[in-house]
Design a protein around this nucleic acid. Structure first.
Length: 108
DNA sequence: AAGGTGACCGGCC
DNA sequence: TGGCCGGCCACCT
């Protein structure tokens, strides 16, 4: 499959997201040292479909909006998963986003 | 090889 | 965070 470091690094970070917590694409990009590549994080998430251990549902945009919801199988699968972890989601938007926000460890 | 694309972000009104 | 615009960078055709 893929041995691309960039994608793999994104997966490593994503896998470190604790249960019931969420983070943003930009935060992951920053953790990788490339804050300007937030879009690539989203791209990597798209490819993460093949990966089982990557909780892409815990990754949202900076506003706490479930922008990637449409990329999941079910129409509201992403929201279901988040609510299953105790996160309240209303209209594709995470309530108390800052409260559930998790900052990835910075490791270049 | 070049251009288009995108699950974004920050700045500005 | 409501909306619009420019920048950014790796991936795909």
């Amino acid at each position: 499959m893929s041995e691309d470091n960039f994608f793999e690094r994104v997966y490593i970070i994503a896998r470190q997201i604790p249960y019931g917590k969420v983070t943003s694409y930009g935060a992951i990009a920053k953790a990788l040292g490339t804050a300007r590549s937030a879009r690539m994080v989203g791209w990597a998430m798209n490819a993460s479909h093949n990966m089982e251990d990557v909780p892409a549902h815990r990754v949202v945009n900076r506003k706490g909006l479930l922008t990637g919801k449409l990329h999941f199988d079910g129409t509201n699968l992403m929201q279901q998963l988040l609510e299953n972890e105790g996160i309240v989601v209303v209209d594709n938007q995470i309530m108390d986003f800052e409260k559930h926000f998790w900052q990835p460890e910075i490791h270049f």
